[in-house]
Computed example of a mutant assay.
Amino acid sequence: MPVYEVFTTAFHALDMMWLDIHGLDDNSMQWRYHQYWSGVPSRDVFQGSGGVPRPPLYEILMPLPVRIGQIVATIELRTSGDT
């Protein structure tokens, strides 16, 4: 998968870990949505398997217009069947 350089005048880094909302009540969900949209990093708040902290999982949102530049890298995506 190619990775492109992107040029923009602004961006927002939002931590998608806050959106893992399974089994939460409405108040907890609203608080997590607020944390997400405020750009607050989860900073290892969430536990993965074996109690190991999970780091933030960022997505970057950019308002238009943006300019897409050259390919700067290529990454190989793993599928669930890969070892």
Rank of each mutant, 00 (worst) to 15 (best):
M1D: 15
M1K: 12
M1Y: 15
M1N: 15
P2K: 08
P2W: 00
V3R: 13
Y4W: 13
E5G: 14
E5M: 14
V6P: 02
V6T: 04
V6L: 09
V6N: 01
F7K: 02
F7V: 05
F7Y: 08
T8I: 12
T9W: 03
T9F: 10
A10T: 06
F11T: 03
H12L: 07
H12F: 14
A13S: 13
L14Y: 11
L14T: 05
D15G: 09
D15T: 07
D15Y: 11
W18F: 06
D20G: 06
I21R: 03
H22N: 13
H22K: 09
H22S: 10
G23S: 06
L24F: 13
L24T: 08
L24Y: 12
D25V: 02
D26G: 02
D26T: 13
D26W: 08
N27K: 14
S28R: 15
S28P: 00
S28T: 10
W31R: 12
R32Q: 13
Y33C: 14
H34N: 12
H34S: 10
H34E: 11
Q35K: 15
Y36N: 12
W37H: 11
W37N: 11
W37I: 15
W37M: 07
G39T: 00
V40I: 10
V40H: 07
V40M: 08
S42N: 03
R43K: 11
R43D: 05
R43E: 06
D44H: 14
V45F: 08
F46Q: 00
Q47G: 08
Q47P: 02
Q47K: 06
G48Y: 10
S49R: 04
S49K: 07
S49N: 05
S49F: 05
G50F: 05
G50S: 01
G50D: 03
G50P: 02
G51V: 09
G51Y: 12
P53I: 09
P53K: 01
P53M: 03
P53S: 01
R54N: 13
R54C: 12
R54D: 14
R54T: 13
P55S: 05
P56I: 02
P56G: 02
L57D: 12
Y58C: 00
I60C: 02
M62E: 11
M62G: 02
P63F: 05
P63E: 01
P65M: 00
P65W: 01
V66Q: 02
R67I: 08
Q70R: 11
Q70L: 06
Q70Y: 04
V72L: 03
V72N: 11
V72D: 08
V72W: 01
A73Q: 05
A73N: 15
A73H: 04
T74A: 00
E76W: 02
L77W: 08
L77H: 14
R78E: 10
T79W: 03
T79C: 09
T79I: 08
S80F: 10
G81R: 03
G81N: 07
D82W: 01
T83R: 10
